[in-house]
Design a protein around this nucleic acid. Structure first.
Length: 768
DNA sequence: CAGTGAGCGAGCTTCCGCTTGACTT
């Protein structure tokens, strides 16, 4: 018999709380939700009967639930301590129902921080389960099920099987598709930006250098040239100097979203990777909970951080701050993400754990440090033969404050404006130019989203929760809607005019534009699904949809409106739209007519086919059979041209014959290849082009592959072989591969030894 | 693993939010 049983959501939390509570308390965890809507019939919802939900304990939860039941039977008092938010309240209610506790007397408690005082305070002040809050969760859950499970089947019928739609994922895809189209439509414009290096000294070129920019940009090279000629004969004078003090404040401590952004920008982590590493740190007690939307720090954390700052950097670097959470729809059930023990400046663990901890430590400590104080100097410089002015700005840090520890990164890539100090000048002082440069600058479109910047955008729109950001990003990639890719970019010539010693010289420079790294690119199927949803379910993919239903969930939580009524208002028209769409709308294939074949006059089209995007010449209405070719990677239905489509039909082609066998070159799933005697050889990336490769080169590649094959076999015992693979030697038998025990000499293996290794490996597999 | 694009039909896919392992190489 246990005196007191406390149920929390997370096992790591259970462990720490048990320590504080002592012997009379046992603390166990529910591992999150324990029940969900069934998938078996009617979506788990009886829409005819006031949306009565049909809940079940999912298979993977039965073990946890039976353990909870057992513990509940043995306990005298039960305290449900799930998180203090909508989902947490629902978990408490499901627990009470499943464990057959009396709803009116079940003790519901919440902790705001994990300290002895906070926990015993909570135990002393139990409340009952808030059914209004529970009902707002039921409305949220049921609405999401209705949206997801009624629209997805429409996509299976009208677009392609296995697709999905949902309140969160479909908006994420829409953001990406719309940004991509803005980028397609973007026409870069160029202008000339004029910068000048002035000096304060008449004679010595190196003295008192001031970097300044002209107040005007020039539309073309001619205008820039004209201006530089003016510059060459102009006199210059300091027209004004202003010195303004300024301060900068530290960023608030990490939430899930800001942690994902900074770990991407500073460490190059994907959002899934960030969460996995943070989970490890959390489980080993090094950081607080990593799925949170709160920037709040506990009193204990504030006090500890202050101590660390004073002892490391001194009293004047400390400034205790509490940050308000501004995020839309934040529920603040947890603290911000922070070191569990701020006095641990570093932790043990693997490299990634150390790096992420370091980032969290710095961000937390910096948030409790003093503002940085700077002095910003602006100088304006007059010309005596033009109304154009030059302006220079410089910044001096008077007190570094939090910058000593941490600076937040930004998504903008051009960080070329480093801080620089302007030499002392006075109004009326003459200046002399060293060199004046006019360089061509192109405008660029809004950047493509990264995983992290998409999370940021979703959070701003109040769409998704800390526990779902990473899974949502995975889902839209798994469905094929978007793909995370690099692009090499393209070369572009820019013109540079330089005035030096009274002469203007013009040069060209090559710059790379459109280079992308780990960006999210919408794919054809993502664009087709998005357009279908925007056409037919505009309400659901509206950027404000979530915010609007959230307002109603809040009203339900306050007891102002009934959850079933809210659902009915939404569902009746929504369901009608679903039926209408099923009945009346055509299949959507994203078809585009590109034009006519220049020789045969047949129509050339592209569309989404059964196996992906396809180009087609002719159609089955004519007697001629239509011809098909798959689009290659990086080509989109939306942007492919007639010429590009026709080009696809040039492959596969026959290069010629060797020893009576045909040599064919083509592009397959894994890139360009050569087929000879029934075997495939990949062409080297970036070296060979399948459209121009010669038969001589093809034979060379085939020969190289044959040589490699020979080296691959170390020992050959018939059905058992010892082979050389990517990760070193291994044993292969009946298409199964086996690792060699450490220290084995592959060349000396006998057939018997191989059999033994295989048997041993099979045994350990079965026993586990 | 380098192909496929006729049509039919059975049986499957799918949501968002809360939590972690259970698997494999």
């Amino acid at each position: 018999m246990i005196e007191n049983l406390v149920i929390v959501e997370s096992p790591a939390k259970a462990k720490t709380i048990e320590k504080f509570l002592g012997k009379d308390f046992r603390v166990i965890s529910s591992f999150g939700h324990i029940r969900d809507l069934t998938k078996k019939k009617n979506l788990g919802i009886d829409v005819e009967n006031d949306f009565a939900p049909d809940y079940e304990v999912p298979k993977e939860k039965t073990k946890v639930v039976s353990e909870l039941r057992k513990a509940a039977l043995e306990a005298k008092n039960i305290w449900i301590a799930s998180d203090e938010d909508r989902e947490g309240e629902a978990i408490a209610w499901h627990l009470a129902v499943v464990l057959k506790l009396d709803l009116s007397t079940t003790k519901r408690i919440v902790f705001h921080e994990i300290t002895k005082d906070a926990i015993s305070g909570a135990i002393d002040n139990p409340r009952s389960i808030d059914m209004n809050l529970v009902n707002s969760q039921q409305a949220r859950r049921i609405l999401d099920r209705l949206v997801g499970f009624e629209i997805s089947p429409v996509l299976w019928k009208k677009v392609q099987p296995s697709l999905s739609a949902g309140r969160v994922q479909s908006v994420a895809v829409r953001l990406l598709v719309e940004r991509e189209r803005e980028i397609f439509a973007f026409k870069p414009e160029s202008s000339f930006r004029v910068t000048s290096l002035f000096r304060t000294d008449d004679k010595i070129k190196e003295n008192g250098i001031i970097r300044a920019e002209a107040s005007k940009r020039f539309p073309d090279e001619k205008e820039a040239q004209k201006f530089l000629e003016l510059c060459s004969t102009s006199g210059y004078e300091v027209a004004g100097v202003t010195v303004k003090p300024g301060t900068r404040s530290p960023a608030p401590p990490f939430t899930t979203s800001t942690l994902q952004q900074e770990a991407y920008r500073k460490l190059g982590f994907s959002v899934a990777q960030t969460m996995a590493v943070a989970q490890k740190l959390y489980e080993s007690g090094k950081i607080t909970y990593m799925r949170t939307d709160s920037t709040n720090l506990s009193k204990l954390a504030l006090v500890k951080s202050r101590e660390v700052i004073i002892s490391e950097y001194g009293e004047k670097y400390s400034k205790t701050r509490q940050f308000k959470t501004r995020t839309k729809g934040a529920q603040e059930a947890h603290e911000a993400i922070r070191p569990a023990y701020p006095d641990n400046q570093s932790v043990s663990g693997n490299q990634n754990e150390k790096k992420l901890y370091d980032l969290i430590w710095k961000r937390t400590i910096a948030s409790q440090m003093a503002d940085a104080v700077m002095e910003k100097t602006t100088i304006s410089i007059d010309m005596n033969n033009s109304s154009v002015k030059f302006n220079a700005t410089g910044e001096v840090i008077k007190f570094d404050g939090f910058l000593k520890v941490y600076t937040e990164s930004s998504d903008q890539e051009n960080n070329d404006e480093e801080r620089y100090v302007i030499p002392p000048v006075k109004k009326g002082m003459p200046l002399y130019y060293n060199v004046v440069t006019a360089s061509q600058k192109f405008t660029s479109p809004l950047p493509r989203y990264t995983e992290a910047s998409l999370v940021k955008k979703l959070e701003e729109l109040g769409i998704g929760r800390p526990s779902t950001y990473a899974p949502t990003i995975s889902t839209i990639q798994n469905r094929g809607y978007v793909s995370r890719e690099d692009r090499p970019g393209e070369k572009r010539q820019i013109r540079i005019l330089a005035l030096d010693g009274g002469k203007v010289t013009t040069t060209s420079r090559t710059e790379i534009t459109g280079r992308e790294k780990a960006k999210l690119f919408p794919q054809d199927i993502g664009m087709i699904v998005n357009d279908f949803l925007v056409e037919n379910f505009s309400e659901i993919v509206d950027y404000n949809f979530t915010a609007e239903v959230e307002e109603q969930f809040d009203e339900i939580a306050l007891g102002n409106i009934k959850w079933t009524g809210m659902l009915k208002k939404f569902y009746v028209p929504f369901h009608k739209t679903v039926e209408n769409t099923l009945e009346k709308k055509e299949r959507k294939t994203g078809i585009r007519v590109l034009g006519k074949h220049p020789e045969t006059g047949e129509s050339v089209t592209v569309r989404m086919g059964r196996f992906g995007p396809v180009a087609q010449i002719g159609n089955s209405e004519n007697d001629n059979k239509p011809r098909f070719a798959s689009l290659s990677k990086n080509q989109l239905l939306e942007t492919i041209t007639l010429d590009e489509a026709l080009n696809l039909f040039r492959l596969p082609r026959t290069l010629g014959f060797h020893e009576g066998e045909e040599i064919i070159v083509g592009i397959g799933r894994f890139g360009p290849y050569i087929r000879y005697k029934g075997k495939f050889v990949s062409l080297k990336k970036g070296v060979d082009d399948p459209y121009t490769v010669t038969i001589e080169r093809a034979l060379e590649v085939i020969h190289e592959k044959a040589e490699d094959e020979k080296k691959k076999v170390i020992r050959d015992f018939g059905d058992i072989m010892v082979l050389n693979g990517r990760y070193g030697p291994y044993i292969s038998k009946e298409k199964q591969n086996y690792r060699l025990p450490k220290g084995t000499e592959a060349e000396k293996l006998t057939a018997d030894e191989c059999t033994r290794i295989i048997e041993k490996s099979n045994k350990t597999k079965k026993s586990s």
